[in-house]
Design a protein around this nucleic acid. Structure first.
Lengths: 384, 384
DNA sequence: GTTAGCACTCTATGCCTATGAGTGCTAACG
DNA sequence: CGTTAGCACTCATAGGCATAGAGTGCTAAC
């Protein structure tokens, strides 16, 4: 369990690098030729045998090359040298795209997921925060024809929620005015999360229209509490990837994605440790269907303190360095676009990692690797 | 080109039916056995040879059975006996689901696409109408922190649009009030489509805040004119279908779908003839990538007269009868959910077809089949 | 500790053949 | 004259088999 000596590291890194780009198991010969470590294939073979024994590599079958295991990827990731700006990511461009979409938070986040999907050719994902922390800035009742009306609620983050309602009978202009006033005064400044409870009592005060408003509040409350929305963008990108040429495989993953709860769990699960950039590799996600995938996410922040994650879900064999930079950059851009002062917890985080891992110092510690003993504390649904 | 005699029809229908369910080319023997036409395989063979010569059938290769051509499907569809309610479609359930989502039009339509995708295991699609016909019921400026504000615009259909804006400097409460008043008075009752033009002059009147509002109006106008949004739901469903076990094929179709313009063209294109239920088979869509697919759509209406289409895109081999009923039912449900009086143009339409085609009368006319001379009047982009 | 050599394993590929579904044609039948 | 039976022919598909090639593990030499 002790650290890897220097050559083993080199070999492991070479294998991961190669596999990331070719998607083919890599053999000793290839390593010796392409990455000049100054030793012969035979030596590499010995190292590879060791690495396999230690759990960093796997062999699909006897006479194929090796591929990295989750543990191998984990080592690779924890060992990555941190960030110069990614040349693929035109920061200014990202800023502009996001700014343009900044009509609402939903737009920004959605756009971020899209950008990530496009840039990586994997899936862009994002969690739309529940928003229980947002507070109400304005609330208006807009009558339409007859007994129909729309309730518009604006939160301090600029996000807007609306709901069409039916009055029991067509209200007079004054009624509408009164209701609007009452609601507005009572609710302004309140957090969305608090709505459910105190909403009911207000509704009672409103007399005959109480029924309707009760219903509305209930719905708004509902959406803002359980309703952590999940966005996934670029499903078809996955089909580009060689590992998903097998339709069955692709189907399994995509299906898992459709059950939003699962992804939610993943996104909610990953940052167990905390903030910043997080990488979950293969089975580190507690989801059997995702065994061949990895998830890279980073938090974003809005001024109201609302937090969510954007990230990339792709094949386990992904260019972690590049993806991590992209995700980090986009998360930062989202935070900026939402108007929060840059608070960039992720940067420190990454450099932290870098410092610890790179100079091969502190070999005794396992770093902040999440691998360890996976899934002992959470039972998975028995499913396929 | 004259009509088909009775037995040819039976054979053709049998073949389509069978192919729809098995996805395998169907041979003379199968037809003779499963559909008792009272004749021997040899006779069927002769009929099939005729049908192929007339263009209703195709042969993947010499020694496979036959499959229907576009023309064959077209005949089948035009000949379908119209609608009893589809048992798969729980009308009441649909109504409830849609009603629940009726917070905004967007929600209803999205939900409709989703339902269709689920029920058919194909793609549910929907066009979100540009909404140039909607008119403005209310408009409010909601200040947030500092120079930020949100513009909220409610249309008579209940749809709500919002945009975050930045004032050149933090405005006073009175400023905001004034702007809101000015805008509201000027714009109320105006159609969204008219915004672009008259908006500018209003902006000028607003003096120092003109710049901002100019920009807002521009954006709202933009979105409501070119911005016919397209929704696609259930991409992964397609992977279930046997014809898309070949990843390459699936990729082509899904890619075509991602270029929204194309789908838009299709949805806009299909109802050339007019309203109601429309079926485009294979190359009847002007899109090479879609040669193996068919599109079934129906219009929905909102009280403001806003129209859009919902439908299903699936393999050319689909159960047209069932799909048509589903689409029709959902479109109707959407219309209801949006509060428009049932105007159901599609029902008459379908019965019309049924009457003409079924009793084998009027053999001389080609019916309203769209096949005929396809794509002579519209050049396709040269694409792949 | 490193390397060369070699036997061994296992997948992928290509070729062949057999199989069988399905056709088209011809001739006989009622 | 329409229908049918029979038969030869076509062609995609599946299985069997040998081959090639990549890669390993082991052993012995350096």
């Amino acid at each position: 369990m002790a650290g890897l000596d220097d050559r083993k590291r080199q070999v492991l890194r070479a294998i991961v690098d190669d596999y990331i780009h070719t998607a083919e198991p890599v053999g000793s010969r290839t390593v010796a030729r392409k990455y000049n470590l100054g030793v012969s294939p035979a030596t590499i073979r010995n190292e590879m045998a060791d690495l396999e024994f230690m759990g960093y590599l796997e062999q699909p079958h006897t006479s194929a090359g090796r591929i990295p295991s989750d543990k191998g990827y984990r080592f690779y990731v924890d060992t990555l040298v941190g960030s110069q700006a990614d040349p693929d990511l035109d920061q200014e461009g990202v800023r502009q795209v996001l700014a343009f979409k900044a009509q609402r938070m939903e737009g920004v986040v959605r756009q971020a997921a899209h950008l990530l999907g496009e840039a990586t050719e994997f899936l862009g994902v994002a969690s739309q925060p529940a928003g229980t922390e947002e507070s109400i800035v304005a609330l208006q009742v807009v009558p339409l024809r007859g007994p129909e009306a729309v309730i518009v609620l604006v939160a301090d983050t600029g996000s807007v929620r609306t709901k069409m309602i039916q009055f029991p009978h067509t209200p007079s202009a004054r009624d509408v005015e009164a209701i609007g006033q009452a609601l507005s005064q009572r609710l302004r400044g309140m957090r969305l999360g608090e709505l459910g409870s105190s909403g009911r009592e207000i509704a009672r005060e409103l007399g005959q229209f109480g029924v309707v408003l009760d219903q509305v509040l209930q719905l708004l409350g509902e959406r803002s509490s359980g309703g952590e929305r999940l966005l996934v963008d670029g499903t078809t990108n996955l089909l580009q990837q060689p590992e998903f040429q097998d339709v069955a495989k692709a189907k399994r993953v995509l299906h898992a994605l459709e059950r939003e709860e699962l992804l939610a769990e993943m996104l909610g699960d990953v940052p167990r440790g905390g903030q910043g950039l997080e990488v979950a590799i293969g089975r580190e996600m507690q989801l059997e269907e995702m065994a061949d995938c990895s998830l890279v996410t980073a938090v974003y922040a809005a001024p109201g303190g609302v937090l969510g994650r954007v990230g990339v879900l792709g094949p386990r064999r992904m260019d972690y360095r590049r993806v991590m930079r992209l995700v980090e950059g986009v998360a930062q851009a989202v935070t900026n676009a939402l108007g929060a002062e840059a608070q960039a917890p992720q940067l420190t985080r990454l450099e932290d990692t870098e410092l610890r891992a790179e100079p091969s110092a502190i070999p005794g510690r396992r770093g902040r690797r999440r691998g360890g003993e996976p899934r002992q504390n959470r039972e998975r649904p028995a499913g396929s």
